[in-house]
Design a binder for these strands. Structure first.
Length: 151
DNA sequence: GCCAACGTTGGC
DNA sequence: GCCAACGTTGGC
């Protein structure tokens, strides 16, 4: 089993939005970065643990715990010309983008980015490295356990 | 294959 | 809104 941190803009899908979804589950659509796609397509498996992170907002930080509920399949938004994530180079025969489904485990208190930054135990997290923009990053099992213990 | 220009991310 | 950092595009 692996551990991941997944960024979502709360104005798009917040932890409360996730909690309100049918089955408290959501398709992680719209990833248009190859590294993040490859994580979903090649490595993420149902049962993998996810830190649900709020980004690009007033209070960036970890907002809850989730898990992968469905393994990767073609992202439907790439085929829809009216969707903002439409990709003219993708076809159903040769899809380019994939997404997993993610299911809520529990909403937690918000652990702000500033707090994460303050723990020496978490200093190696990808999210803290300068210039990091990747929306899906692997998390070390020890880092994950540390965070859960401090939520 | 190089690399300049451009677009996006995301914290502040 | 600013801007650093990074990824992608496309001409050559």
């Amino acid at each position: 089993m692996r551990y991941w941190l997944m960024k979502s803009e709360p104005s798009d899908v917040s932890i409360d939005d996730l909690a309100a979804m049918p089955n408290q589950s959501v398709a992680w659509y719209g990833v248009r970065n190859y590294q993040a796609r490859n994580f979903m397509r090649d490595q993420m498996k149902p049962g993998d643990k996810v830190l649900f992170y709020h980004s690009s907002c007033a209070q960036p930080g970890i907002a809850g715990l989730a898990e992968v509920s469905v393994r990767a399949y073609p992202d439907a938004t790439q085929f829809d010309p009216r969707n903002e994530y439409f990709d003219p180079k993708a076809t159903p025969e040769t899809p380019r983008w994939f997404n997993v489904d993610v299911k809520l485990v529990r909403k937690t208190r918000l652990m702000p980015l500033s707090e994460i930054r303050g723990y020496p135990e978490l200093a190696n997290m990808r999210i803290l490295q300068r210039g990091n923009r990747l929306s899906i990053t692997p998390v070390d099992p020890l880092e994950y356990a540390f965070i859960v213990r401090h939520l």
